[in-house]
């Protein structure tokens, strides 16, 4: 099958209809190539799942198929980076952040090579595929690796902006992205700055600090709580490492309650990173870490799971009200 046919294949059309956010991954890489960067994209038998089929169609010579050899893919990406290439390699976050953890530590981070790792279908987005395919530990493993930047964009446009911005970021990066179905938070003109959180409103009563798929429901939850007369803000914290500690301290100084929200185990994730800052810089604010409470998730349709684990708008409103009591 020629590459030209693939963009018109049923797999691609079906995917694009369901997961428009994934287009932004390929689009960001295509932007980089057009800007003259030596991008190489690699996938481990998941080019339809992560949408890299679009990039492969536009730049077949810059797409590498690694097959179901995730650890090999990461190590090879490091080798590629030594030759001046700018490698982006993608697979399910459950495999990248855990199966490939040691290859990332030794071959990517220890060597300080500008490899870009794309862990997709994070958290419990793979629903009934179960624990093998759920990624609720990857922030924890990745942020414990020295020198590795960890980024969890809120939506497709922010992902595309972050990928473009990565051309100027020398350190290796772990991008944590979902399945491309996140409602839009930002417009196409959004920009990205590594290490900076983005404030959405001032919260005297409560501020959500959220990343990734939890940013959109946090914004909706804040709006609902504001309608009830509460002062509630949201911080989108796409860079989990290096964390915007200044913004965490600012929020902790002005809000009674800080609620972190993430599609991840509360141990070791965004909530833990915020807790570390708040513990070392005491304020009057109380911290509530919300996420997966150190358990393996149930299976089910993702929307049902988000409702069950209170990771949707109504769930976040409930968590906030409990904390405000």
């Amino acid at each position: 099958m020629s590459a030209t046919l693939e963009a018109g294949s049923w797999q691609y059309r079906a995917l694009n209809a369901l997961n428009p956010g994934l287009d932004h991954l390929s689009d960001g890489l295509i932007d980089l190539v057009e800007a003259g960067h030596p991008v190489v994209a690699g996938s481990a038998d998941l080019k339809y799942s992560n949408g890299l089929v679009k990039f492969a169609d536009v730049h077949p010579d810059r797409f590498l198929q690694f097959g179901i050899s995730e650890q090999h893919m990461v190590s090879a990406a490091a080798g590629l980076a030594t030759t001046g290439a700018m490698p982006f390699v993608a697979t399910f976050a459950s495999f990248l952040g855990l199966l490939c953890c040691e290859q990332i530590r030794m071959d990517v981070a220890y060597t300080k090579l500008p490899v870009r790792l794309i862990g997709h279908h994070t958290g419990i987005a793979l629903g009934f595929y179960g624990t093998s395919h759920h990624a609720t530990e990857d922030i924890s493993t990745m942020r414990a690796i020295a020198g590795l930047t960890v980024v969890s964009p809120a939506d497709g446009p922010q992902l595309r902006a972050a990928i473009r911005a990565s051309a100027e970021w020398e350190q290796p990066i772990y991008f944590r992205i979902s399945r491309g179905r996140d409602p839009r938070v930002y417009g196409d003109d959004v920009t990205f700055e590594f290490g900076r959180g983005i404030e959405h409103g001032y919260g005297a009563d409560l501020t959500f600090i959220a990343c990734g798929t939890l940013v959109h429901p946090a914004l909706e939850a804040a709006e609902a709580l504001r309608r009830e007369g509460l002062s509630v803000g949201v911080v989108d914290m796409p860079t989990i490492k290096p964390l915007d500690e200044e913004l965490v301290r600012l929020v902790a100084a002005r809000s009674r309650i800080v609620v972190t929200a993430e599609e991840h185990n509360v141990l070791g994730g965004l909530g833990a990173a915020v807790a570390e800052v708040m513990a070392e810089h005491p304020s009057r604010a109380r911290l509530v870490r919300h996420g997966i409470a150190d358990e393996f998730s149930l299976i089910g349709p993702p929307t049902h799971l988000y409702r069950h684990y209170r990771l949707d708008t109504a769930g976040l409103v409930g968590v906030a009200k409990l904390a405000l009591q």
Partner: peptide, 27 residues
């Protein structure tokens, strides 16, 4: 030193990546 090592089993993958990069760069 062309690549760090210590954890056995990675090096041939690193080398494959280098060869792929060399081919792409026309070296």
């Amino acid at each position: 030193i062309d690549f760090s090592s210590g954890s056995i089993g990675h090096a041939l993958s690193n080398g494959v990546g280098m060869a792929l990069g060399g081919r792409l760069a026309g070296r």
